[in-house]
């Protein structure tokens, strides 16, 4: 797959032309950085949710759980 296609796949859209025209190494690295940030963000969201649920007072834990899970 071409590097700009990698980036487009990660973004779910074609990047601006001036970005697509960048060297392959730049595009690959950017695609990797975005994918890593996405993975990290998802893991942090899950962790935040678990921590938040465990931390909320029992009285409101049910509604918090219902909302975020």
């Amino acid at each position: 797959m071409k590097p700009d296609a990698d980036l487009a796949a990660v973004l779910g859209a074609s990047p601006p032309e001036s970005v697509s025209a960048l060297p392959a190494a730049t595009l690959s690295r950017l695609a990797e950085q975005i994918a890593a940030a996405k993975k990290r963000g998802q893991a942090e969201t899950e962790e935040s949710v678990r921590t938040a649920i465990a931390g909320v007072p029992f009285a409101v834990r049910g509604i918090v759980k219902k909302a975020v899970l």
Binding site: A13, P16, V19, A25, L30, I34
Partner: peptide, 21 residues
Amino acid sequence: GLDGVPDADLRILHDQISRTL
């Protein structure tokens, strides 16, 4: 490697990344 990209395109790229994340 993004230094030469015009600001307007960097804004678009930022928003695309934001949507992705």
